[in-house]
Design a protein around this nucleic acid. Structure first.
Length: 573
DNA sequence: CTAGGGTTAG
C-alpha cells in the first residue's frame, strides 16, 4: 500500500493518473467498496492545483460503483477549495453517509461561497448528530459564520465550545477584524492574553489588522511589543502586518524602520505594503524610490506592486510618471485589472485630461466598474464637463448604483452651469430611488481610548463642550475669511436632513474633541471611514494655523497632514 | 492516512 501511495504522490500529469487508475481497474481494486489506493488517487487528483485535474477527479468518482464516504470526502474537499465552491454544496446532498470530515469540507465551501443559509443548515445537522463539542468543527464553523457575515452566530458558537484552543480564538479574532468589528477583535485579543491563553502568529495578525483599521496606535504598539517579546517577527506575514499597522496609524516612518530592520526575508507583500504606505502618505518620491529598489531584488513585482505605485503617482500628482508606469506594465508581464484602469483614469481625470481618461475607458478589455465611472464623474465635476458627466451618470444608473454621492456630483455639475431644471430633475430621481447614504464616522484615540463620532453626534459624554468648541472655531475662522462651502445642492437636500449639516461632520467633531483633550504639541490624529469632505478640509487647514496644531486625518484613501494652514496633499485629492 | 485560524489593494 505504501508503495502505491508513493507512486500516486509522483503523478504529475493526467496520463500518470490514468495509468494508476488503469492499474487499479485491472487488479480489481477500483470496484471494491473500500479501496484506500483509489481514495488516495482521487484525493491527489482533486487537490491538485492545476485546473484540469478537478474535473477529472469528478470523472473518476462517477465511475466508482459504490463510493465510500472517504471517496466522497476526497472529491468534496477538492470542490470546496476549487473555483466553484457551490458545486461542493450541491455534491454534499448526494452523500449518503456523511461523517465529521464531510461537514468540515462543506463548511469550507459554504464559507468560500459566502452562503449563510447553507452554513446554518450544516450547523443544525451537526447539532442533531451531537458533533458540537468537536473543537475542529467548532473552529471551522466560527470561521464560516464570520466569513458569511453572521458574527453573532460566530460568537455564539465560540461561547459554546467547552474547551477552546488557540485556533478557535484566532478564528473569532480574525472574523471580527475582517467584519469591521475591530474594537471587538482587539478586545477579544486582550481577553485572550488576560486569560493566559497561549497566543501565536495568527492571533497577532488578527489583532494588528484590527489596529490598522482603527488607527489605534497605542494598541498597535502593544501588539508589536508582544510580537518582539515572543519572537513572532521571524514570520514575514507578521512583519508585513506590523508595517501596515504603523502606516495606517499615520507613521509611515515607524513602518519603514521595521521594513529596513526586519531579519526575515521580504516578500512581495512586504514591498507592496511599504510602497502603499508611502503612497497613502502622499510621499510619491519615496514610493518610487522603493519601487526602483525592489526592481533590483529577486522579488517579482506583481499587479499589486503596480497598483501601489500608480496610487503613489495619483496621490502625489505625478501624472506623466503614472502614465508611463501604466504603459510599461504589459511589457513587464503584469496583468492589468480594473483597479489599474481605475487608478489611471483617476490620475488623468484629476489632471483635467478627461478626453484621454475617456479613451482609456473605451479601450479597456475588461468591463469598467462603478468606482471607475465615479472617478470620471468626479473629474467632470471639477472641470465642469456636463456632457461627459451625464454620460458617466447614465452608466452609473445602468449599473444600479444608488449612492448619494453620484447624484450629488451630477447635480453639482448642473448647478455650476446654473441649469436649475436639471438640478431639480436629479433631486426628484434621488427621491424616487432608494438612495443609499453610507453613514460617515470618525475615530480619534485619546490616551489609548478610541472615541467614535458620527455626523451630528450628541452621544459623547462631553458633547456640549465639543459643540461649544466648534462654535468658537467657527467664530475664529470667519475672521480669516472663511465662508462655508455649502454648495447649492447640498443646501437644498440638507434641509430634510439636519444631521448632515456641514458644521457637525464627524471629522470636525473629532478634531474639536482632540483640541479639548490633547495636550499641546501632540498632533491630533483622526480616522474617517469615507473621503474627507471639501469643507472640512478647508476648516481643518485653518484650525491648524489658528490653533498652531498639527492635525493628521486618515480618510478612506490616504492621509492628510495639516500644518500651518496647509495640507500635505497640496489640495490635490 | 485524510479536518480548523492568516499579511498588501482605487
Amino acid at each position: 500500500m505504501a508503495f502505491m501511495d508513493s507512486i500516486i504522490q509522483k503523478c504529475t500529469t493526467l496520463s500518470h493518473i490514468k495509468q494508476v487508475q488503469a492499474h487499479l481497474l485491472t487488479t480489481g481494486q477500483f470496484n471494491l467498496r473500500i479501496s484506500p489506493s483509489r481514495t488516495r488517487l482521487l484525493e491527489h487528483c482533486a487537490l491538485s492545483p492545476s485546473p484540469a485535474y478537478l474535473p477529472y477527479a469528478a470523472h473518476i468518482h462517477r465511475h466508482i460503483p459504490h463510493p465510500s464516504t472517504n471517496d466522497f470526502n476526497a472529491l468534496l474537499r477538492g470542490l470546496a477549495r476549487g473555483p466553484h465552491p457551490t458545486h461542493a454544496l450541491t455534491f454534499l446532498s448526494t452523500i449518503l453517509h456523511p461523517d465529521a470530515l464531510t461537514f468540515s469540507f462543506s463548511l469550507i465551501a459554504s464559507a468560500r461561497a459566502l452562503a449563510l443559509s447553507e452554513t446554518s443548515q450544516i450547523h443544525s445537522h451537526l447539532l442533531r448528530r451531537g458533533c458540537h463539542a468537536d473543537i475542529l468543527l467548532g473552529t471551522t464553523l466560527i470561521d464560516a459564520y464570520a466569513k458569511c457575515g453572521d458574527l453573532d452566530s460566530a460568537q455564539r458558537v465560540f461561547d459554546e465550545i467547552p474547551l477552546r484552543d488557540v485556533a478557535a480564538w484566532n478564528a473569532l479574532i480574525a472574523g471580527l477584524a475582517q467584519g469591521s468589528k475591530s474594537s471587538e477583535a482587539l478586545a477579544l485579543f486582550n481577553r485572550m492574553r488576560a486569560e493566559g491563553e497561549k497566543i501565536n502568529e495568527i492571533s497577532v495578525l488578527g489583532a494588528l489588522a484590527a489596529c490598522s483599521q482603527l488607527g489605534a496606535l497605542r494598541a498597535g504598539e502593544g501588539v508589536h511589543a508582544c510580537v518582539r517579546k515572543m519572537d513572532l517577527d521571524i514570520n514575514v506575514q507578521v512583519c508585513n502586518a506590523v508595517i501596515d499597522m504603523y502606516a495606517k496609524c499615520g507613521f509611515a516612518d515607524k513602518g519603514f524602520r521595521v521594513f529596513s530592520t526586519m531579519t526575515c526575508g521580504k516578500s512581495v507583500v512586504t514591498w507592496n505594503t511599504m510602497i502603499m504606505a508611502f503612497a497613502m502618505h502622499g510621499d510619491g518620491c519615496r514610493a518610487l524610490e522603493l519601487f526602483e529598489e525592489m526592481g533590483k531584488t529577486q522579488v517579482e513585482m506583481d499587479s499589486v506592486t503596480y497598483l501601489a505605485v500608480l496610487c503613489a503617482c495619483n496621490h502625489a500628482g505625478l501624472v506623466e510618471e503614472g502614465v508611463r508606469l501604466f504603459d510599461e506594465m504589459v511589457g513587464r508581464g503584469v496583468n492589468r485589472n480594473v483597479k489599474h484602469y481605475g487608478s489611471v483614469v483617476d490620475l488623468l481625470g484629476r489632471a483635467g485630461r478627461l478626453g484621454e481618461a475617456y479613451r482609456i475607458i473605451n479601450s479597456m478589455p475588461i468591463v469598467p466598474d462603478v468606482v471607475l465611472w465615479q472617478s470620471l464623474l468626479g473629474a467632470c465635476k471639477t472641470y465642469g464637463n456636463v456632457e461627459m458627466a451625464e454620460m458617466a451618470s447614465r452608466k452609473l444608473v445602468e449599473m444600479g448604483s444608488n449612492s448619494c454621492g453620484d447624484f450629488v456630483l451630477l447635480s453639482n455639475v448642473y448647478a455650476a452651469r446654473e441649469r436649475w431644471e436639471d438640478v431639480g430633475r436629479v433631486r426628484e430621481a434621488m427621491k424616487s430611488r432608494d438612495v443609499r447614504k453610507v453613514p460617515g464616522f470618525s475615530y480619534i484615540e485619546v490616551e489609548g481610548v478610541i472615541h467614535k463620532f458620527v455626523n451630528g453626534d450628541q452621544s459623547h459624554p462631553d458633547w456640549r463642550e465639543i459643540y461649544a468648541k466648534l462654535d468658537e472655531i467657527r467664530f475664529r475662522i470667519k475672521a480669516f475669511g472663511y465662508v462655508a462651502e455649502t454648495s447649492l445642492v447640498l443646501h437644498d437636500i440638507g434641509e430634510e436632513d439636519k444631521e448632515n449639516a456641514l458644521c457637525h461632520h464627524s471629522e470636525k467633531l473629532a478634531v474639536a474633541f482632540g483640541l479639548i483633550s490633547t495636550s499641546e504639541g501632540t498632533p491630533i490624529r483622526v480616522n474617517k471611514n469615507l473621503r474627507i469632505c471639501g469643507d472640512c478640509h478647508v476648516v481643518i487647514k485653518l484650525i491648524s494655523k489658528i490653533y498652531d496644531q498639527e492635525i493628521i486625518v486618515r480618510d478612506r484613501a490616504r492621509f492628510h497632514r495639516f500644518k500651518d494652514g496647509s495640507c500635505s496633499c497640496r489640495d490635490y485629492w
